[in-house]
Design a protein around this nucleic acid. Structure first.
Length: 330
DNA sequence: TACGAGGATAGGC
DNA sequence: GCCTATCCTCGTA
């Protein structure tokens, strides 16, 4: 299996300085790009073994290591004199592969086809990142733009990031910061507060900032927007201002199989039958959502069973472990 | 050992 | 009062 996508911020150009820093380039020497679905979702020990604070985004499915083969390059070419063309997010990234488009000679047909394929796959990658950030925002009930976060939002994001990358708890080191403070921090600032996790946190924040920048500056693809809005309109509980119920949260996860299909999935959507594939993971997500770090499946399942009496969830006719059924399917 | 069922209690809203 | 978290006992696979 080819190595996963890796994103690296180019330290020679400050991303923190925005706005000239869209998530714009993915590069790899052998010209093979992997989409999120191809990636391993487990933290890979080899990165930490090398002493590299690799980011293994179990949800975002992106990677960050010190390996410079992959590069997220800041584009100052989005438009003349800093102007930004109105590009769809899928159009913004440009694959810059050695041997492709850099030859003084006209590229061969084969090269052109390969370049187009790379662009398409890369567009998928960027699209997935944006989509996953939106999903995380909904689950955490925070805005996608870190600049708008209050201290509580920052803590939620930190919890989420700790969870994604199996980091030690770092919330206390950042408890006095809001989003603006966080975004103004350099990697060195992160290092001062959290020597262990500074690179991971900083890089992850840069991805979020880049995504927020793209969302703001680039016209979001109408199709994707519609799809996203439809998705959320089905199960959006976070916009109502009401506290989310567990059954709503489970339905949210079920409606995003691209993100959570590995931990919870429909067995029979028409009948509302679903299976919790990774009980611990679902419990952790629920704990994150509710700010209950001690949440576990034992407690979550007890809450689910409370729905039996209310007629919201029940066990299916043929009872199976970790399988439940919505009494009133979507 | 993990999961399932359900009683009891506490706390937040 | 409702909802959820938490703790508990007991049973089952």
């Amino acid at each position: 299996m080819a190595s996963p996508v890796r994103i690296q911020t180019d330290s020679s150009r400050s991303i923190a300085g925005f706005p000239e820093s869209p998530l714009s380039f993915l590069k790899r020497e052998d010209g093979i790009v992997q989409t999120s679905d191809m990636l391993d979702h487990k933290p890979r020990p080899d990165a930490s073994d090398r002493g590299h604070p690799g980011l293994y985004l179990s949800c975002f499915d992106m990677l960050f290591t010190e390996d410079t083969t992959w590069l997220v390059r800041l584009s100052d070419s989005c438009g003349p004199a800093g102007g930004v063309p109105r590009l769809e997010p899928e159009q913004c990234p440009v694959i810059d592969s050695p041997g492709l488009g850099t030859s003084p000679l006209s590229p061969t047909l084969e090269e052109q086809v390969e370049e187009r394929s790379l662009e398409q796959v890369q567009s998928l990658v960027v699209g997935e990142v944006l989509k996953d950030i939106e999903t995380a925002c909904k689950l955490l009930n925070i805005t996608p733009d870190p600049m708008e976060w209050n201290c509580g939002n920052v803590q939620k994001w930190l919890l989420w990031t700790e969870h994604l990358y199996r980091l030690p708890q770092v919330g206390k080191a950042f408890q006095d910061l809001d989003g603006k403070d966080l975004c103004s921090m350099s990697e060195e600032d992160f290092r001062l507060r959290s020597p262990q996790c500074s690179e991971t946190l900083h890089a992850h924040l840069e991805i979020w900032k880049s995504a927020a920048w793209m969302k703001e500056r680039c016209a979001v693809g109408e199709t994707r927007m519609r799809e996203t809005e439809e998705l959320w309109s089905e199960a959006d509980s976070s916009c109502s201002g009401q506290p989310i119920h567990l059954w709503q949260f489970l339905r949210e996860l079920l409606l995003k199989p691209q993100s959570y299909g590995r931990c919870i999935r429909w067995l029979n959507k028409e009948k509302g039958i679903f299976k919790i594939e990774d009980s611990a993971h679902v419990a952790r997500l629920w704990g994150l959502r509710k700010n209950r770090p001690a949440m576990n499946y034992d407690k979550l399942s007890r809450s689910i069973r409370q729905y039996y009496k209310k007629g919201i969830i029940r066990k299916p006719d043929v009872s199976q472990r970790l399988v439940y059924q919505f009494v009133h399917p979507v």
